[in-house]
Amino acid sequence: MVENNELELSEAEAEQYDRQIRLWGLESQKRLRASKVLIIGLSGLGAEIAKNIILSGVKSVCLLDDEKLKETDLYSQFLAPPDKIGENRAESSIQRARALNPMVDITSETKAVDELPDAFFTTFDIVCATGLKQEQLERINNICRDSNKKFLCGDVWGMFGYMFADLIDHEYSEEIVQHKAVKRGPDETEKNARETVSITVKRRAIYVPLQNALSADWTKPELRSRLRRGDPSYFAMKILLRFRDEFNRNPDPAKRKADTEILLRMRDELVKELNIPVGFISDALLTDVFGIVSGAAAVVGGVIGQEVVKAVSQREPPHNNMFFFNPVKCVGFVELYGQ
């Protein structure tokens, strides 16, 4: 998707990106340098994603947010200085975002996503959306899809988080390491050694849009069998997205008790609706979902940042299509929904 930039890296770029070039190669670095990224929502998660992407050395990052910086943001949002409370979150993040890597072009947009025309979103190569309602996410996902632009979204509530990716029809190369026996010595005095040979293979992955993933049909046997594996994170995400849609906000630390009750009630409704075994979605998973905990934002923001790097560099298999961080077990896993 990103045109290969024929220009060679400058000496300064080669120096600063030395370590990562050793990991993902020069070609990937050139693709990164040619890509334009939109980050929606400058909460703590948005800040983590922005940091990772800016450090990687993309061409440009646009920070989009119409919200004002709140005190609670500061517990995970390190791009906006504490003295900017009350100001726009995207604008107040710009200065520190630029300082992370002066070679990346950083801009901000303070309009609400609903006020922005479709054409706005398609000027980027990849869009990362956080903190939006399901309907908004689906709108942007569909706009991106129609223009063959990559779309990622994710959220962190308290300690819990998820990511969804729609890379449409994604081609990538993957390095496969093979071992082969090599004879080193002139005779049997030196043992045969194993040498690793890496070959690069081209692969392709097909994605589905967000609405398919969110409306996965749990009556189907292949999904029912997932219940045996026992991780309820998908449902926790559904409940938290519904909470946001219904109350037009996230669970509030100041209303921890009342909101927990609401969440547990919504959990019980979902259990009935999808015919999930009672007790499958434990209370524990819906207890620590207030605010954005810095450690969890770092974890989920790290995963999303790496997926952006994979998507634009078209190297290494990207996750298809949902990632969950379950803090109760400290497990992070990928599952495919909606196909």
Binding site: E48, N52, L55, G295, A298, V299, G302, G305
Partner: peptide, 11 residues
């Protein structure tokens, strides 16, 4: 790389 470090530090 930044991302792996961020994940490990978060954990």
């Amino acid at each position: 790389i930044a991302t792996a470090n961020a994940i490990v530090a978060g954990l």
